[in-house]
Amino acid sequence: MLLLATIAILIGGIIEIFPMVMIESNVPRIESVKPYTPLELAGRDMYIREGCVGCHSQMVRPFRSETERYGEYSKSGEYIYDRPFLWGSKRTGPDLQRVGGKYPDSWHFNHMLEPQSISPGSIMPPYPWMIRDELSLDLLPKKIKALRTLGTPYPEGYEQIAIADAQKQAERVAGRLKKDGIEMDGLEKKEIIAMIAYLQRLGTDIKPKAQATK
């Protein structure tokens, strides 16, 4: 009984999952898709922490109504470094797969602080703590190492420069914010910087024009 039930429930899973994981042609690679930078990774983990996926998908379906609204439809090769995947299952807010480069950094800053000031009537909650709290980068080296173990092609020894790399990118983001008139002490050390870096990266790997964040 136990054995038969086990066999019955294993068959379907095996037939679906094993080929997906083992046969490479199921997930075609895309040359221009690169791993996240350390700062973007920190931002992505913040996106995970806040449960943004509860309201925002990252999956543009191949319908004209979606490509018109969001841009190019999603390809499986774009997600090969996404651990975990963040496709989502509900759009209480719009899809974010192609949000990178769509708005200036300062738009995101103000929007996270008070969504209604940018989009009157929006039901997105405010995230003041991202602007208040300092970003912790301590775990980055460990994260880079773990992701390399799992197959993300970060070069050997990259974990040692990961924090410095993140700080450099953070300064660039903060610089752009300053140019747009957002002045704040220690701005480059705040959580919001990583979040902006991640959001601006989203979906840009296969965009033809130059990326705003690089």
Partner: peptide, 9 residues
């Protein structure tokens, strides 16, 4: 981090 990424995940 999960062992599998993207579509497989």
């Amino acid at each position: 981090y999960p062992v599998f990424a993207g579509v497989q995940d």
